[in-house]
């Protein structure tokens, strides 16, 4: 194997790397996930506005309180669901990985058996 010379790159490997490292599509929910998190970040600047409401009297204070509670609970629920989805995707990836490795090892065993059988027949 010739050592890699950046001035004379191994074109075959470079081409294979470009193919292997092509950009992948992000999950369908990626943009929604970012925007949900941005919205929860965006609550911060509105805090003064909310505080103004909370400082006022009457039904508006209650409405603001209810809205705040709803937003907080909604946010917590969304975060729980997000975490659960991430854990589930990770577990699924492990399952697929394990099954692929199983397949590879079974294939190797089969190839070895066939190879030994061929050797026996040849003798």
């Amino acid at each position: 194997m010739e050592p890699f010379d950046p001035m004379e790159p191994n074109e075959e490997l470079e081409s294979s790397l470009r193919q292997a490292l092509e950009r992948k599509d992000a999950p369908e929910w990626f943009v929604d996930g970012v925007m949900a998190r941005v919205k929860s970040e965006g609550m911060k600047p509105r805090r003064n506005w909310l505080a103004g409401w909370l400082g006022s009297s009457g039904w508006m204070r209650w409405a603001a309180a209810v809205a705040t509670v709803a937003i907080v609970f909604g946010g917590v629920r969304w975060e729980q669901e997000r975490r659960q989805r991430l854990q589930g995707e990770a577990a699924k990836a492990q399952l697929m990985m394990a099954l692929k490795m199983t397949g590879e090892k079974l294939r190797m065993a089969q190839v070895r058996v066939q190879s030994l059988e061929r050797d026996e027949q040849a003798q």
Binding site: G33, L86, E89, A90
Partner: peptide, 9 residues
Amino acid sequence: RAIAEEIGQ
């Protein structure tokens, strides 16, 4: 995928 999604976000 999970880590990529989290860091990407």
